[in-house]
């Protein structure tokens, strides 16, 4: 498992650095591009634990669609391309403290609960068959699936209604 751990470390480091860049960079477009790295990293982590279908979906939906949506949003709101001086509000210290506090609590709880539990404690990591996922969605979670479809429809209509010019 050494190789996996090494890859995890590399990807995780890239993700964390990029994530910090996302929330600190002064350039909106750069933020979006750093976000791409984080999202791709998440997809890579998914594949690392054998969740291939979800990893591919992550790439398709996030990098394929959501980021494009963000770039359109940036363009349409004509946010200045390039450096902006005050992209952060004056409460960023409080925000930072809050985030740190939250992280401390969560880390403590996690270490307390799963100290060095192996992720393979309940069986070796194996690529989970897409079929199992689809069976699960369309059998056990059919109603939530329908609800999500309905939600997407509602969001579609809602977004059009909200953003439409009168």
């Amino acid at each position: 498992m050494v190789a996996q751990n090494i890859f995890f470390g590399i990807i995780a480091a890239a993700m964390v650095v990029s994530a910090i860049k996302v929330v600190t960079t002064k350039n909106v477009v750069h933020a979006a591009l750093y976000l791409v790295i984080v999202l791709a990293g998440v997809a890579a982590q998914f594949i690392l634990v054998g969740a291939e279908f979800t990893g591919v979906t992550q790439v398709l939906v996030y990098i394929g669609a959501v980021i494009v949506l963000f770039l359109f949003g940036i363009m349409l709101t004509r946010a200045r391309i390039g450096h902006e001086m005050d992209v952060d509000n004056e409460r960023r210290w409080i925000a930072g403290l809050t985030a740190l506090l939250l992280f401390a609590v969560m880390t403590y709880a996690l270490l307390d609960a799963f100290d060095d539990t192996d992720i393979e404690a309940n069986g070796a990591l194996a690529p989970q068959a897409t079929q199992a996922v689809s069976d699960s969605i369309f059998r056990d979670y059919l109603i939530p699936f329908e609800a999500v479809s309905f939600l997407l429809l509602a969001a579609l209509i809602g977004a059009i209604v909200v953003a439409r010019r009168e």
Binding site: M15, A19, V23, V28, N89, R92, A95, T98, L100, M106
Partner: peptide, 22 residues
């Protein structure tokens, strides 16, 4: 947890609406 907290920081500290969404 780390990504979550970075995200929380971003939500709280950013002035730009699009950046908050990110």
């Amino acid at each position: 947890a780390l990504l979550f907290c970075i995200g929380v920081y971003g939500v709280l500290a950013r002035r730009n609406g699009v950046m908050v969404l990110m």
